[in-house]
Design a protein around this nucleic acid. Structure first.
Lengths: 189, 189
DNA sequence: ATAATACCATACGCTACAGTATGGAGTGGT
DNA sequence: ACCACTCCATACTGTAGCGTATGGTATTAT
């Protein structure tokens, strides 16, 4: 039992969380109704009461993920006034072993659906814009800020995949800290 | 018709090429026998003559890809004596819009099978080793060479995903050249 | 010319999953 | 006490793909 209080019935969010967990580790294609139902200890009769179909679940799950991710960034990064410190905080957060990174990196290789491509493009452009903004505030010119933010973001994405490939999971906080320091030294001078 | 000479019968390599094409664009999970057969204008009776099962095709396809990739690197990169020029050549090749990169980046998010994880780890460590070697030959110490090669490789992987995400495909040669120059300036000083 | 072999079509059984239809148990409101 | 609504189980239909069995045709060898 992972829950002390045995819940009487499931909510839509319970299904979304389970779906996000699958997405993080096996991708969108692996999100299947019946296996999820088994995992949650119910049948798909429950599922089709909460959602209209499989894609509906995927959509709403990604929506939830996106909101949570946005909130995280707004609270821990965008509140920092000093642009250099803000970038450093971003590098550190990027290397933290949290689910949101796993989901993002998994989605990156999943071009199965137009919806996902669209979401990814939006998120990526959004984040690039933040980085570029910070570099500009540090005093760099437009062109350099653009190229450098693309480079920094590539490092972020690459690091996610590398970690999973080499270690099978995201590295722990200590390793992440060290790596963030090195990256900062190379990309924040 | 994409072939002038209409072939009388298919070879195992024809199936492998078709499979690699699917892997490059939709991932290993999307490799299915019957759809491939339809695409090749035959039925699966043909498939099961050439391969014992679906996984057999995947294995052999990846083996072919790996051999081709190895040959490419050996011929265009490892033959260069000067370490700095060698690294520059690697950066440039990394940004070229060729299928081998697509396959690699797609595999990176595909942890469905132990075999694939194993292959990926091997390839990644192999490439990291080459990079590290080049940095060392440039005169950097062991520790820096290791960190820097990891950084450079992260940039490579990240760039692949970014390109697909933002532009839907790998960028053309001209863009690739510019990007490689910038990366080289930042990571090769 | 005949036999062997390479290559493929067809037809089959099996499984996993999507989605629907319907009924039933529990719970809260009145 | 009764009703309505929430949540889920059960039982279906339909489809896509895996793998097998078997027979047929064209090519090659002898």
């Amino acid at each position: 039992m992972n829950e002390v209080v045995k819940k009487k019935s499931l909510t839509a969010e319970d299904w979304q969380d389970a779906a996000l967990n699958v997405i993080a580790h096996q991708g969108v294609a692996a999100v299947a109704v019946e296996p999820l139902a088994r995992e949650l200890g119910v049948t798909k009769g429950s599922f089709y009461w909460h959602f209209s179909n499989r894609m509906d679940l995927v959509k709403q799950s990604l929506k939830k993920w996106r909101l949570g991710d946005k909130k995280l960034v707004e609270e821990t990064i965008l509140t920092i006034k000093n642009p250099k410190k803000r970038l450093l905080a971003w590098f550190k957060l990027s290397a933290e072993p949290i689910q949101t990174h796993l989901i993002y990196s998994t989605l990156l290789a999943d071009r199965s659906h137009t919806l996902i491509s669209k979401i990814l493009k939006e998120i990526t452009l959004e984040r690039l814009s933040h980085l570029q903004q910070s570099y500009r505030e540090m005093g760099f010119d437009e062109k350099f800020a653009k190229a450098q933010s693309l480079l920094a973001y590539s490092v972020y994405v690459g690091f996610l995949h590398m970690s999973k490939t080499l270690y099978g999971s995201l590295p722990d906080s200590k390793q992440a800290e060290e790596y963030a320091q090195f990256v900062a030294k190379q990309l924040l001078s």
